[in-house]
Design a protein around this nucleic acid. Structure first.
Length: 959
DNA sequence: CTATCGTCAATTTTT
DNA sequence: TTGACGATAG
C-alpha cells in the first residue's frame, strides 16, 4: 500500500486514541498502513511513549515491518524503537518470563523454576521425540493408566491434546485444574443440546417431514463396531421417526469421565514438570506460564499493564491470547484489528469467534477473569466497531464475487444458514478499472490445462493487468497458482519444469524427503555403525549398483575402497554442518536444499554436543513426519508463483488461478482419528475404551461418543474462508480449475465451467538425459555375471540436470525415434522441430536406438562396454553416428566424446568399408558438432579394472 | 425417501 | 479410521 492520505474510516481509527475498538479490516483495506499511522498518532499525544503501547502481531516478520513503518511515520528512530513492545504474543511472553517469571511454575504448584538457561524448543519433531521419551517413563510409573495407553494409536496425539488445552486456557495444577479449567473439560450440556436439536430437526421432503440428519447419520450404528453391553441397539436408538428420542441427548452426554480427566491431568502436569526438568519450554507453555503468572501476581500484572494495547490479525488469535491481551491492558484503550473472513488457522487453535463475537467474548472473559479478584479494571460495555471498506487491491467484480465463496455448500448435502451473509461487510473497490475475467475450467489432465491457460494468458491483452493505473499485457510474474494442499503445487512445479515454463514454488518444502537429505542420512548411518548397512544400501544403490550387487556387498562387507576412504574422511568432520557439506560436495549438490539442510542442522544442533545418533533420529523422524521447511529457492526472473493459500495470505497477485478444486482435495477429506480428544461443547471424550466388558478385554467403541460426534458434524466454514482468501488475493483476474472429479465447492461456483484442451507449448529449455553408456566386467564372485554400471562422470551433469530436464530430454528422444521410423508425430517443442528439420535434411536410411557392445581387453580382463545409439544415418559410402543432446550448454562435451568413441568403434567394425563419423546434435539450437573419436587404447586406459574392483564388485570407472 | 454396501483418499504451518 | 458419495434395491 502506498502511503497516501488515509480515507475516512481509516482516519477515524487513527484518531480513535482511546476506548475499545474492534476493527473489521477486510482484505486489501490498508490495515497495516492504518495501524502504523494510529501508532504514530498515539505517540503524538504528548504523554504517550513507545513503552506505553503494546502492539501485537501474528509473525515476527510482521513485527519487524510494523517497526519500520512506524519509524517512517513518526519522529522516533529505529534505535529508539528497538526495545518497544512491538512483538508477537510468544515473543512478548518470552521476554516477560525471562524478566519476571522464574517462579511462574509455582503458580501451577510445580516445584521447579524457569531459569535464564531455559531453552525454547522450537522444533516440533524434536519435541515429539522428547515427549515420547517422557511418555515411556510415565507409562512405567503409572500402571493404573495402562488401559488408556492401550487405546492410543500414537503418542503425539496426546501432545497435541495438551497443546490444544493450553491454547484454550486449560492448565493442570498439583491439586487439580487451574482456576475454572475443569468446566471446559466437562463441556456444556446446554450448548450441546442446541446442536443435538439442530441435527435432530426433521428435514423437509416433497410430501411432509423426512428423517433428521442425526437419525440418518446413525443408521448403521452397529455396523463394523463393537460396543460395551450398556449400548442401545440401533432399533432402540432410532425408534422414533422422523427424529430420534430427545432422551438420547443426555444419555449420550452423561458419562463418567473422572478417570479420563485424571489421566489427562497427570500426563499434562508431569509433562510440564518433565520439560522444566529438561530445561525447555514449548510455545504453548510460554503462554501458559505467562498467563498463570499475570493472573496470580496482582502487583506484577499491574506493573506491566499498558495504557494502549493494539492486536493485529485478531482473527488468528487463540482464546488464551485474547485473555492475555485483557490481562495486559491497564485502561480501556484496547484495539483489535482483523477480518473473520480470513481466519484460516483453526488447526493452530485460532478461534474465529474472538473477533466475530468480540463483544460477547470480551464480557465473558472479563467475568471469568474477575471471578475472585478484579483483574480487568475497565468497563467493557462500550465497544466501538469500525469497518474498513475501501479496497485498494481488487476490482469490484472480484470483491463482489468473493462473497459467494463464504456461502458455498462444501458437500453435496450441506445447507448454509443466512446468518453468515449478515456478517459480511461488503468492500468497495478503489480502482477505476473493472476488466476482470472470472472463469472456471476443468480438464482431466488438470496440470496441463493450467499450463495451457497460463500460456494463453501471458502476453494476452484480454487478461490485461493494472500497472500504475494503466493496463498492460500480463507476464508470467503476474500469475499465481494457489492450492489448498502442498503436493499439488509441487506436482505442478515439476510438470511446468518439463515444459520449461518458469515456475517458482514458494513456501515450505519437504526438505527431508529430498535426495540430499536421504544421502546425508545414509552417510550418517554409515558413520554410526549401528545402522550402517541401511546406509550402505542407499549409497551403493545411488552409485548404480544393482540390487543383487548391493546384497552381495552387504553380505560380505566388501565396501568399495573409494567409499570407505570417504567415510573415514567424513568421520573427521567436527560439526554436523561440516559433515553435511562434505557429503553434498561429493555428490555435487550445491543448491538451496543443501544449503537449507546445512543451516537447519546447524541451527538445531549446536556444535557442543554433536551427537550423530541424535541427528540420525532427527532426520528419520522429520522424514517420517513429512516436516517442511522454508527454502529460498527462487529462480528469479519472470516466473509464475505457486503456493498454498495459507502461504499466500497477506499477499496480492494480479492474476490468481485457484487450482485443484477436486473431491477430497478442497475441502480435504478425513480428519482426526485421535482416540482421546477435546471438543468445545462436549469436553474431553474418548472414542474407544479399553475394558473387559462382555467377559473379554477389548478396545470397545464408545457408543456415546458416536452419537455426540454425529451432532457435532464437520465444519466447512474454514474451507470457505480459505477460498475467500484465495479469491481476494487477486487484483485483476481469477480462474478456478478442477480435474476429473470437481469438488462441490467448485461445482457450486456461480460460473459455467469451460473444458480446456491441454496443449502446452514447450518452452526452449533443455536438460540432459542420463547417458545410456554402460560397462560390464565379469566378476568371478558375484552371483550375476552381468553388472551394468554407469561409465561416465555424473558430476558434469549435476548443474544442468537436477531432475528437471530428464523428462524433457526423454520426450525429445522419443519424438526423434518415432519420427525417424516414419510415424506420424507432430513436434511439440522447438527442440523437436529442430530434430524434424535435421531428419528431413538427411538423404540416407535411418537406424534408431541401436544397442552396441564393445568388448575390450584391459589388464587381461575382458570388459564389455555397452550403450544405445540414438541414430545411425547410413548412406552408400558413409555412416554417421548421431547423438541427440538437449543440453543448452557445451560443457559436457568431453564426457560425450568417450561415449561416442565407443559407438564409433562398434560401428566401424560393422561397416568396415564405409566412412564413419560421429557427431552430437544439440536440439536446443539445431547445431551439429562433429566429434573426433578416441582411440581404442585410449578408451582402454580410461576403464579402470584393478584387483580391488574385481574382488569387491565395485564400479569399473572410466576416469 | 431409506437402507446398505462398496469405494476413495486422507491438510494447512507460525510461534 | 473416518466421512462423503454413488450405486442399487426396496
Amino acid at each position: 500500500m502506498t502511503e497516501y492520505e488515509p480515507n475516512e474510516r481509516q482516519q477515524e481509527l487513527i484518531d480513535a486514541t482511546s476506548g475499545i475498538h474492534v476493527v473489521d479490516a477486510g482484505a486489501g483495506t490498508g490495515k497495516t498502513f492504518t495501524i502504523t499511522r494510529r501508532y504514530a498518532n498515539l505517540l503524538e499525544q504528548g504523554d504517550v511513549e513507545p513503552e506505553d503501547i503494546l502492539l501485537i502481531t501474528f509473525t515476527n516478520n510482521a513485527a519487524g515491518e510494523m517497526k519500520e513503518r512506524v519509524v517512517a511515520n513518526c519522529d522516533y528512530s529505529m534505535s529508539a524503537l528497538r526495545d518497544a513492545p512491538i512483538n508477537t504474543f510468544h515473543g512478548y511472553c518470552h521476554d516477560l518470563l525471562i524478566r519476571h517469571g522464574f517462579d511462574a511454575p509455582t503458580r501451577l504448584g510445580i516445584d521447579d523454576r524457569i531459569t535464564s538457561s531455559t531453552q525454547l524448543l522450537e522444533n516440533e519433531v524434536i519435541e515429539e521425540d522428547r515427549f515420547r521419551e517422557f511418555l515411556d517413563q510415565f507409562i512405567e510409573a503409572h500402571p493404573e493408566y495402562h488401559d488408556y495407553f492401550r487405546t492410543l494409536n500414537n503418542a503425539t496425539s496426546l501432545l497435541d491434546l495438551i497443546k490444544e488445552l493450553a491454547a484454550k486456557g486449560v492448565f493442570p495444577t498439583d491439586e487439580g485444574w487451574f482456576r475454572d479449567g475443569e468446566s471446559f473439560l466437562d463441556g456444556d450440556y446446554e450448548e450441546f443440546k442446541t446442536l443435538f436439536d439442530e441435527a435432530n430437526e426433521p428435514n423437509e421432503g416433497a410430501n411432509g417431514a423426512t428423517q433428521s440428519d442425526l437419525r440418518d447419520g446413525l443408521s448403521g450404528f452397529e455396523r463394523d463396531r463393537c460396543y460395551e453391553p450398556d449400548a442401545p441397539s440401533e432399533n432402540d436408538l432410532r425408534d422414533g421417526y422422523p427424529q430420534i428420542d430427545d432422551a438420547w441427548a443426555s444419555r449420550a452426554f452423561d458419562e463418567d469421565r473422572d478417570n479420563l480427566k485424571a489421566f489427562v491431568h497427570d500426563v499434562y502436569l508431569e509433562y510440564i514438570a518433565f520439560a522444566l526438568q529438561r530445561n525447555y519450554l514449548n510455545f504453548s507453555f510460554l503462554l501458559m506460564f505467562t498467563f498463570a503468572m499475570l493472573c496470580e501476581d496482582h502487583s506484577l500484572r499491574e506493573s506491566v499493564q499498558f495504557d494502549h494495547v493494539l492486536v493485529d490479525e485478531f482473527q488468528d488469535t487463540s482464546e488464551i491470547q485474547f485473555k492475555l491481551a485483557l490481562l495486559l491492558t491497564g485502561t480501556d484503550n484496547l484495539c483489535v484489528v482483523g477480518d473473520w473472513k480470513q481466519s484460516i488457522y483453526g488447526f493452530q487453535y485460532a478461534s474465529v469467534d474472538n473477533i466475530r463475537r468480540f463483544e460477547e467474548r470480551l464480557q465473558t472473559y472479563k467475568r471469568e477473569l474477575n471471578g475472585d479478584y478484579v483483574r480487568v479494571d475497565f468497563p467493557v460495555d462500550d465497544v466501538n466497531e469500525i469497518s474498513l471498506v475501501e479496497n485498494y487491491r481488487s476490482t469490484q467484480s472480484i470483491l463482489d464475487f468473493s462473497e459467494h465463496s463464504l456461502t458455498l455448500p462444501a458437500t453435496g448435502s450441506e445447507e448454509i444458514g443466512p446468518e453468515i451473509q449478515d456478517d459480511i461487510t461488503s468492500l468497495a473497490a478503489i480502482t477505476e478499472h473493472d476488466h476482470s475475467n472470472i472463469e472456471a475450467f476443468t480438464c482431466d489432465d488438470e496440470q496441463e490445462a493450467i499450463l495451457t491457460r497460463i500460456q494463453e494468458i501471458v502476453g494476452n491483452r484480454e487478461y490485461a493487468v493494472e500497472d500504475d493505473g494503466e493496463l498492460r499485457a500480463p507476464t508470467y510474474d503476474d500469475v499465481a497458482v494457489l492450492t489448498r494442499t502442498r503436493d499439488f503445487g509441487r506436482e505442478l512445479q515439476a510438470c511446468a519444469a518439463d515444459y520449461g515454463i518458469p515456475v517458482a514454488y514458494e513456501g515450505g518444502v519437504e526438505l527431508f524427503g529430498t535426495e540430499q537429505s536421504i544421502l546425508l542420512l545414509a552417510w550418517l548411518r554409515i558413520l554410526e555403525h549401528e545402522d550402517s548397512k541401511r546406509g550402505w544400501a542407499v549409497v551403493l544403490e545411488e552409485a548404480g549398483y544393482t540390487l543383487d550387487e548391493v546384497k552381495h556387498v552387504l553380505e560380505n562387507s566388501t565396501y568399495p575402497t573409494g567409499m570407505v576412504e570417504f567415510r573415514d574422511q567424513l568421520a573427521e568432520a567436527e560439526t554436523i554442518g561440516g559433515t553435511a557439506r562434505r557429503v553434498f560436495d561429493r555428490y555435487g549438490f550445491d543448491d538451496a536444499y543443501a544449503d537449507g539442510l546445512v543451516s537447519l542442522l546447524q541451527g538445531t544442533f549446536d556444535s557442543t554436543h554433536h551427537n550423530r545418533g541424535d541427528i540420525v533420529r532427527f532426520l528419520e523422524r522429520s522424514l517420517d513426519a513429512g516436516a517442511t521447511h522454508e527454502v529460498e529457492d527462487n529462480p528469479g526472473g519472470d516466473s509464475v508463483t505457486v503456493q498454498t493459500i495459507h502461504a499466500a495470505k497477506g499477499l496480492e497477485h494480479p492474476i490468481v488461478i485457484m487450482a485443484n478444486m477436486n473431491q477430497h482435495r478442497f475441502p480435504p477429506s478425513g480428519g482426526g482419528a485421535d482416540r482421546i480428544r477435546y471438543e468445545e461443547t462436549v469436553g474431553l471424550r474418548q472414542s474407544k475404551r479399553y475394558t473387559d466388558a462382555h467377559g473379554r478385554p477389548h478396545l470397545y467403541d464408545n457408543w456415546r461418543y458416536r452419537i455426540l460426534s454425529k451432532c457435532l458434524g464437520r465444519e466447512y466454514d474454514e474451507e470457505r474462508r480459505l477460498l475467500y482468501v484465495a479469491i481476494t488475493r487477486a487484483e485483476s483476474h481469477v480462474l478456478f480449475s478442477a480435474g476429473e472429479s470437481p469438488s462441490p465447492l467448485f461445482e457450486n461456483l456461480p460460473l459455467e465451467p469451460s473444458t480446456v484442451e491441454p496443449d502446452v507449448e514447450a518452452a526452449a529449455v533443455g536438460g540432459t538425459e542420463q547417458t545410456q553408456l554402460q560397462i560390464s566386467v565379469p566378476v568371478p564372485e558375484t552371483p550375476s555375471g552381468q553388472s551394468p554400471h554407469s561409465l561416465m562422470d555424473d558430476r558434469v551433469f549435476s548443474d544442468v540436470e537436477d531432475g528437471k530436464g530428464m523428462e524433457f530430454g526423454t520426450r525429445v528422444h522419443e519424438f526423434a525415434e518415432r519420427y525417424a521410423v516414419g510415424e506420424a508425430v507432430e513436434p511439440t517443442s522447438p527442440d523437436e522441430r529442430n530434430v524434424q528439420t535435421l531428419l528431413d535434411s538427411l538423404p540416407g536410411e535411418f537406424r534408431v536406438e541401436e544397442n552396441v557392445y564393445l568388448p575390450l581387453s584391459v589388464d587381461g580382463q575382458q570388459v564389455t562396454i555397452s550403450g544405445i545409439v540414438d541414430l545411425l544415418h547410413v548412406t552408400d559410402d558413409w555412416v554417421e553416428i548421431m547423438d541427440y543432446k538437449t543440453d543448452r550448454g557445451r560443457h559436457a562435451e568431453a564426457e560425450y566424446r568417450k561415449q561416442l568413441s565407443v559407438y564409433y568403434h562398434v560401428v566401424r567394425q560393422e561397416y568396415p568399408d564405409r566412412r564413419v563419423s560421429t557427431s552430437i546434435y544439440y536440439t536446443a539450437d539445431g547445431e551439429r558438432v562433429e566429434i573426433d573419436p578416441l582411440l581404442l587404447e585410449e578408451l582402454g586406459e580410461l576403464v579402470d579394472v584393478d584387483e580391488t574392483h574385481e574382488e569387491r564388485g565395485e564400479d569399473p570407472l572410466i576416469r
